[in-house]
Simulated assay, not measured.
Amino acid sequence: MRRIRAAAVATMVMALCACGDRGAQEPPPRPVLVERPQPAPGTSRSFPGEIRARAESPLAFRIGGQLVRREVDAGDRVARGQLLAVIDPGDFEAQARAAGARLAAAEAQLKRAAADRARYAALARDQLVSRSALDAQEAAWRAADGEARAARAQAEVARNQAGYAELRAPVDGVIASRQAEAGQVVAAGQAVFTLAADDGREVAIALPESAVGAFSVGQPVEVELWTAPGQRLRGRFREISPAADPVARTYAARVAIDEADAARVALGQSAEVHAAGAGAALSVPLSAVQGGNDGEATVWVFDDGRVHPVAVEAGEFGAERVPVASGLAADDWVVLAGGHLLRDGQAVSAVDRHNRPVGAGAQDAPAPTP
């Protein structure tokens, strides 16, 4: 009987331990909705621009001649090494043949000089010829060797010249424009095509003198296509010219569009860049702020799969948004609602307003329109 009681007690203890282990397990990640902070109303400026390729290369022949064949047209997609155009190679092929004939003659002369040198060397060992005669044959061989080397280099140059009659794409991309037609005589270096490479898309804009000092390279911005109003893509200032245009008195700038959004734009599209000047306040939705004007305001920030409370300096609460003077960065992910149900360091599953996952292994989505 005592054994039965002991067994029952042991079973109960094991069951309680198992229940304790299950209770200690971390609950599954809570789903949360997040978005990037937006510029506070009145602090963002807009600049019109045009979608351009990051690298736009004018393509030209290294030699001049008549363009006899054009294989592609503006708008065509090309691959690296693809044939684009051909100029008449007749003269260059003839020069290559002539250089090859001169090389053959030089090599024959070198072969004969080498044989003469070998014979004179054998005779010199038997003291049948003078040392000066052997030196003369040695000099003749060296001269023939030099002639052969020069002819070989000239033949290589002539072959290269003949090969330059074909214009091929240096990288993958799109033919942005065409500047020559079949039958036209083009000079060496004259642009025939402009190739927009597939290494990124940018917006070319012009900043006025009064505003250029408020922006810096690397600063995040938003890009809105005129064909898709209300949908904003993420970007950053990649380049701001240090010198103004002498006529327009504006500073050329390039805004690089994030790779995740680059596929959604086409070359030549009109776009508008929305950028907040240096020191401009950000804003978050009213539902994202915990606390009020009478106390310290807090927002929950998502980072690396978990959320953390961040104290912010909030301005006057509006009907839908709250300006934030400090405490947040433009590239933070802010939890939009449900902060009272979260705890510091809690694992969450974050999505944006388009229900796309955000975080490690997920592409950052374009920020929504404020």
Rank of each mutant, 00 (worst) to 15 (best):
V351K: 10
E26Q: 12
M12G: 15
A106R: 03
P48C: 05
P357K: 09
R131D: 13
G49C: 01
A148H: 07
A206M: 08
D21G: 09
A7P: 03
E320M: 05
A288P: 07
M1W: 13
G339C: 06
A325Y: 13
I240V: 14
A40V: 05
R30I: 01
G339N: 11
G268R: 10
L233G: 07
A256P: 03
V322P: 04
G268V: 01
T298W: 11
D73Y: 04
G163P: 05
A115G: 04
D344M: 01
L16Q: 12
S210T: 15
G327C: 05
A266F: 10
A139S: 13
A15M: 14
A113I: 06
R22Q: 12
P28Q: 10
D352A: 03
D331S: 09
F61C: 06
R80T: 12
H308R: 12
H340P: 03
R30T: 06
V255N: 10
E26L: 14
A143C: 02
V212M: 06
A360P: 02
L233N: 09
T194S: 09
A256I: 14
A297P: 07
G213Q: 03
A148W: 08
A96T: 00
E224W: 02
R152A: 15
G100S: 11
R238I: 00
E50K: 08
T43Y: 05
E209H: 08
V13Q: 13
E272V: 11
A350T: 01
A115I: 05
R353P: 01
L195Q: 09
A337D: 13
G81C: 02
E222G: 14
F47K: 02
Y251C: 13
A15I: 14
V217A: 09
G277N: 08
E181G: 05
S270A: 09
G173M: 05
W141R: 14
